[in-house]
Amino acid sequence: MAITRDEVLHVARLARLALTDEEVERLGSQLSAILEAVGKVAELDLADVEPTSHPLDLANVSADDESRPSLSADEVFANAPDREDDFFRVPPA
């Protein structure tokens, strides 16, 4: 199942990515290859298999509603490319 150029551009736009023509070409063939590999599963008869949303046979992992310390301002902004007062600053949205 080949991914079309339009599909690559659509997904890129949703992810706010600007791609060059060369990248559209390359990603299109990579995504096609990934889909093809996943498509292998479709060859099996899975009529009796429940859809899996998680690989572990586990449910109800949760935590009590008790607060834990948040980060200090220095830590919060340590990786921030841009900051204004105590806000993260980003280009106009």
Binding site: S67, S70, L71, V76, F77, D85, D86, F87, F88
Partner: peptide
């Protein structure tokens, strides 16, 4: 488990999970 506090100083209730 960051505390919820309306009107707290900006970004003072954040941690690696919610960031």
């Amino acid at each position: 488990r960051c505390e919820l506090e309306y009107g707290a100083e900006e970004n003072s209730r954040t941690c690696p999970v919610c960031l």
